[in-house]
């Protein structure tokens, strides 16, 4: 088994609206996969289909070599899920919910449970209604992370966590990856994605618009260059991949597609570089480009 999750051409409609419109997603075994997209892009719907809670209207879905709709119960014993908004039973304590969910998944590791309670600094004795948003999220995370499962499906799991807990979460996920678990992490926090994810899929309006390693994605972005040359440059404008070119005597400012960086730098050095400032591509830039809604057609 190579891929833990393979989704191709997934379609899901709710009445008139099309939530998923040919979505593709491949998560290899043992990787941490970032799942990004603006609100309403279809991330939660995708995860619910992977859980067999909703049925796809089209496309193929394979999860841990099974069919999520038909084999739901046996697959659920091998995965753990944390929703973006964990809701608890008001009259059950956090510790009770952790134990219950763990047992229903087929058992949880008590030592790991206690370690996580300590690291996330959670009082398991409080009743469900008494927890704040962040603490409810911790209950869901601990229940999932203390279970001995192959795959973690996390839907914006850190919403409401403070930066300190966010850091604990990153350490724990890094450890899980070290143990060979596969993680699908839906998130909006780019630093989290950069720190944790091997590969990333960006979806928008129910379709996958970008997928690959972070390095590959960086290649899709542009580098900003500002240089002072010995002689006024020429021929820059005709080079492929150059954008927003400004030339004032010996001063040059431009943006270049990462794939064309080498060619442009050769051209610049041929004019004698006196000083050079270059800003690496930021993921933010890439994400923002994809998050912005398309103008009405």
């Amino acid at each position: 088994m190579e891929n833990s999750i393979s989704v191709a051409g997934l379609v899901k409609r709710f009445g008139q609206t099309t939530a998923l419109d040919g979505l593709d997603l491949t998560v290899a075994q043992g990787e941490v996969h970032g799942f990004l997209g603006p609100n309403g892009a279809g991330k939660t719907t995708t995860i619910r289909i992977l859980l067999g809670l909703q049925r796809a209207d089209g496309g193929t879905v394979r999860l841990l070599d099974g069919d999520p709709w038909h084999d739901a119960v046996s697959l659920h014993r091998r995965l753990a899920y944390v929703p973006g908004d964990v809701t608890l039973w008001p009259n059950l304590s956090g510790g009770e919910v952790i134990d219950l969910l763990g047992r229903l998944r087929g058992g949880l590791n008590p030592a790991r449970r206690n370690e996580l309670l300590e690291r996330f600094d959670l009082d398991p004795r409080k009743k469900g209604r008494a927890y704040s948003k962040g603490n409810r999220q911790k209950v869901g995370l601990i229940a999932a992370l203390a279970s001995d499962v192959e795959l973690l499906l996390l839907d914006e799991p850190t919403s409401g966590l403070d930066p300190l807990m966010e850091e604990v979460f990153r350490q724990v996920i890094a450890e899980e990856k070290g143990r060979g678990r596969t993680v699908l992490l839906s998130s909006h926090i780019l630093s989290e994605v950069e720190a944790l994810c091997d590969r990333v899929s960006i979806i928008r309006q129910g379709r996958t618009v970008e997928t690959g390693t972070l390095t590959q994605l960086r290649h899709l972005t542009r580098t900003f260059i500002s240089a002072e040359l010995s002689t006024p440059p020429n021929g820059l404008a005709s080079l492929p991949g150059v954008h927003d070119l400004h030339v004032e005597a010996n001063q040059v400012r431009l943006q270049v597609d990462s794939a064309q960086l080498d060619t442009v730098l050769r051209q610049l050095t041929s004019h004698g570089v006196r000083s050079l400032v270059s800003q690496p591509p930021t993921l933010e830039e890439l994400f923002l480009r994809h998050y912005e809604t398309e103008p009405a057609k």
């Binding site: 119960v73 046996s74 659920h76 014993r77 899920y81 809701t87 969910l101 229903l104």
Partner: peptide, 14 residues
Amino acid sequence: AALRSEALLATGVS
């Protein structure tokens, strides 16, 4: 409606 059944149905409960 409170999304609590979702948490249970995502475990090994049919």
